[in-house]
Every structure is written in structure tokens, then in C-alpha cells.
């Protein structure tokens, strides 16, 4: 018995002593990158290209593991609850981190409950109509909405997505009544627009671009700070007088308490990966904007959205009691 206790104590000491040298030699073994959305989705494709592009800058393999479900909260919760040793990190998105915590009880809340590592890409949001829509411009669409309040239907990929919140912000700022129809992802909302079941749509460029090129849809305005080179004729909402520029962005996160030197190694490798030609090409063809930000600026930006989204969700009655 005494020997068992002694041995256990010795093991415990070894276990306690281990993390310090491990941090110095990081990374000693492969790293798991949890992607909280299904394989083949928009985020998964960014994750896999990122991992490819990090290869020259990171001495160990990084494996993408998909843990989809519940709008990205399950995989993100798993990252937040993982051991903070730098061997489990995650990719996540703005809405997962700054909208969902206001809606359900999750193991993470504000941006101080995890470590933001690096901001990767921004997926802009655009407003599109069918090609045969009588509205030639965004102003005409809004005027149509004013003459027939509630008659025009606008789709989003789901309640509580950034694409939905931008629509609600537009309704508030432009003082128009549009009927919001939520779908389960862009793969449902785009066909609904093309089939004439809704009159307008908030979507990502990659989802709507093939239909614009085929002459089936038109982009009327973009929720961006500058015009989108894919749709040069579409003004920004800021130009129209509505200051809505939020896009969806993807970032890397680590569990809270991951040692700073380890976070620095991950940050540096990911930052260099953003400049790799393969990653740049992927971003351009998919309509993603590479948008680097370091941990401090990123945490600030997350706090900003976290608070703004809480206020907006309360106003819409979508926040949890």
C-alpha cells in the first residue's frame, strides 16, 4: 500500500513537472485542429487549406477533425474544454463566439473564456435579388418595401446568423418592414430565391456568384467597407447611408490558459500561412478576404461584436432570458 502511495505521488510529481519543459519544446507531436462544421463546408475548406499552407512553417502535422453540430457550438465547446497545452486548437467563426453564447448556456461566454490566436479570413455578405426583380437598385428595393410593408420576403441561412442580424440591422436603420424567412444554410436559401419563393437574400459571394454569372441573379449592395471587386457595380450599404459592414470571419482559438509562447508559435505559423500562394489563390476564387489580425486586436474586435450582438439580440427578443 505504502509503495503504491509512493509510486502514485512520484507519478503525480512527474505529471506536475511536465508542462514546463513541454512548452519550451513545443510542438513535440501532431496538433489537432477541431473544425466545428461538417467536412466539405465553407469553414472546413478554409481549415484544410490553412493546414496545408502551415506545413512549411510548423514542424509537426496538424490534423483537421470535424466535430459538427448545433451551429458550431459543440466543436467550439470541445476546444474550450480541452487541455490548454497547444495540442488541441480550433477554428471558429464570429457568430459561434459572439451570438450563440447569448442564446444558449455554453461552456464559453465572452472572449476572455478562450484565447483568440489569429484572425484568418472574412466572408463578406451581399444582398441579392433574382435577375427578373423589378428593383434595379437597393434604393428601389427599399422603396418597394416601403410601399408594401411586409410583402417582400428576404431569406437568410438561419436565425441568429450574422447574415440574419445584418438584415435586422438594415430593417431598423432603413425603417422598412421586410418578412424574414430563415433557411438551414445557403444551400437552401439560394434555390428558394431562384425559384421565386423569396424576393431577396443575404448570402456570401461564393454562394451567389455562379448564379450572377449565369444571369439568374443580381447583387444590389454589399455589407462591406469597400466595394467588392466581384460585384463592382453594387454599392456598399455605407454609401447608401446605412452603416452595416459586418461580415462573417473565421479565426483560430485555443483553450484559456494555453501558455503564451505556445500561442506565439501557432500565431506565427498561421500568419505566414496566410501569405502562401496556395492559400491566397483559394481565398480569391472562393471570394474570401484574407484579414489578418493578431491576438490583442482580435480580442478587442470580438468584445466589440459580443456586446453589440447582445444588444441587438435583446432588441429582437432572441437572447436567452
Amino acid at each position: 500500500m505504502a509503495r503504491l502511495v509512493r509510486r502514485s505521488l512520484a507519478l503525480l510529481l512527474v505529471a506536475l513537472a511536465a508542462p514546463a519543459p513541454a512548452a519550451a519544446a513545443y510542438p513535440e507531436r501532431p496538433v489537432t485542429l477541431i473544425c466545428p462544421f461538417p467536412a466539405g463546408g465553407a469553414m472546413d475548406i478554409v481549415a484544410r487549406h490553412l493546414v496545408e499552407a502551415m506545413k512549411p512553417h510548423f514542424p509537426r502535422p496538424i490534423t483537421v477533425v470535424n466535430r459538427p453540430g448545433a451551429a458550431g457550438t459543440i466543436g467550439t465547446a470541445e476546444v474550450v474544454q480541452a487541455r490548454p497545452d497547444g495540442y488541441t486548437i480550433g477554428i471558429s467563426a464570429l457568430a459561434v463566439l459572439t451570438v450563440q453564447p447569448h442564446r444558449t448556456d455554453l461552456p464559453y461566454r465572452g472572449p476572455d473564456t478562450y484565447e483568440p490566436i489569429v484572425k484568418l479570413v472574412n466572408l463578406p455578405i451581399v444582398f441579392a435579388v433574382r435577375a427578373d426583380s423589378p428593383a434595379r437598385t437597393m434604393r428601389e428595393f427599399l422603396d418597394m418595401a416601403r410601399t408594401a410593408p411586409g410583402k417582400l420576403r428576404v431569406g437568410s441561412p438561419g436565425i441568429g446568423t450574422i447574415l440574419h442580424l445584418n438584415l435586422e440591422a438594415l430593417k431598423l436603420e432603413a425603417r422598412v418592414d421586410l418578412t424574414h424567412v430563415p433557411f438551414a444554410g445557403g444551400a437552401e436559401s439560394v434555390p428558394a430565391l431562384l425559384g421565386g419563393h423569396i424576393d431577396g437574400l443575404n448570402a456570401h459571394p461564393s454562394e451567389i456568384l455562379p448564379h450572377v454569372q449565369a444571369g439568374k441573379a443580381r447583387v444590389l449592395a454589399v455589407y462591406q467597407e469597400q466595394r467588392n471587386p466581384l460585384f463592382p457595380d453594387a454599392p456598399t450599404f455605407r454609401e447608401l447611408g446605412y452603416d452595416i459592414t459586418l461580415g462573417v470571419y473565421y479565426l483560430l482559438i485555443a483553450p484559456r490558459g494555453t501558455p503564451a509562447p505556445i500561442l506565439a508559435v501557432l500565431h506565427d505559423a498561421a500568419r505566414r500561412a496566410l501569405d502562401e500562394p496556395s492559400f491566397v489563390t483559394m481565398a480569391r476564387t472562393r471570394g474570401y478576404v484574407i484579414d489578418y489580425k493578431g491576438p490583442e486586436a482580435l480580442r478587442q474586435e470580438l468584445w466589440d461584436s459580443y456586446r453589440k450582438n447582445e444588444a441587438l439580440l435583446r432588441k429582437l427578443g432572441l437572447a436567452r432570458p
Binding site: 453540430g69 457550438t73 465547446a77 444558449t104 438561419g158 436565425i159 444554410g185
Partner: peptide, 22 residues
Amino acid sequence: VGMEPMSGVSRFTFGAVALAQG
């Protein structure tokens, strides 16, 4: 059971994050 795909409301999860996947 789980998080409703359109609105993200969790149902019959009894507070368990794992059940939210449905």
C-alpha cells in the same frame, strides 16, 4: 431533440451540450 437548425434554439437537451447535436 437538439439544436433546431433554423433558429438555433436547443430542445430536450436538459442542459447537456452534447445533446444539442441531435
